[in-house]
Simulated scan of single mutants.
Amino acid sequence: MTITAKTITYAAGIFTVFWLIIAFLITSVEAVAYWTPGYYEKEYTKYQVLNDLPEMNMDDLLDVTDEMMAFLRGKRENLHVYTTMGGEYREFFNDREIAHMEDVRGLFIGGLWLRRIGILITLCFAALAYFWGRKSAERTEALKRLIPKSLCIGTGAVFAVALALIGIISTDFSKYFIVFHKIFFNNDLWVLDPRTDMLINIVPEGFFFDTAARIALVFAVIVGMFFVGNLVIE
């Protein structure tokens, strides 16, 4: 097998890993946000969010949360959600919160599309490797060694960068929380007032820190399993 072919295989493998890691990250976010039973109730209880809301019970708050998450996934057209607060049946979110959550939904939907792209690229890479390797036993054997190695290299590099970012962010979560919003939002709708905006009361900074930490843990487990799997194959 020529050096050029090896280089192409490594480059293609590392490129594929980059997109696959994005898919892993989006899946980690989904796993925490949507697939963790009781997570929101536990966080709401931990931060005593009901104390900062007009009279409201946990069941109603969880119903509002379900509607909000459905909106973020594109399964609900708008965020005009009504519930009972302070003995009054009223709309939970105000116009500013709704406008901000529309921006957040754009990020969620965009992330899901990135995952689809990552999966598609991975399938294309696997198909090309399979059909190219079938041409000879030598090529098949070479690919069996090169592909896992390239995937390990790519995974290790991306994971190292991710760990570095996690380490940096953990030194001052509040600072980088603001930086994140300034990067991904071109307005100040995310700057909410706890006196008038319910959203900031149900998801305080501590909630975001816990969620980010849990996402990082799930992400590390998925990437670690993928890395070890390729290492064993290699």
Rank of each mutant, 00 (worst) to 15 (best):
H100I: 12
M101Y: 00
D103N: 14
G106Q: 04
G106F: 02
G106H: 02
G106K: 01
L107A: 12
G110N: 07
L112I: 13
L112D: 07
W113Q: 10
L114S: 04
L114T: 02
R116I: 12
I117Y: 08
G118E: 04
I119M: 06
L120C: 10
L120W: 03
L123G: 04
L123T: 15
C124F: 13
F125E: 08
F125T: 07
F125K: 01
A126V: 13
A129G: 11
F131I: 14
F131Q: 07
G133T: 12
G133R: 05
G133F: 09
R134P: 02
K135E: 15
S136F: 07
T140K: 00
T140V: 08
A142H: 03
L143G: 10
L143E: 08
K144T: 11
R145D: 13
P148I: 09
P148F: 11
P148H: 13
K149S: 07
K149L: 13
S150E: 08
I153Q: 04
I153F: 02
I153P: 01
G154C: 04
T155I: 03
A157R: 00
V158S: 05
V158W: 03
V158C: 06
F159W: 15
F159N: 12
A160Y: 02
A162N: 05
A162I: 14
L163H: 01
A164V: 14
L165H: 01
I166A: 07
I166Q: 07
G167V: 15
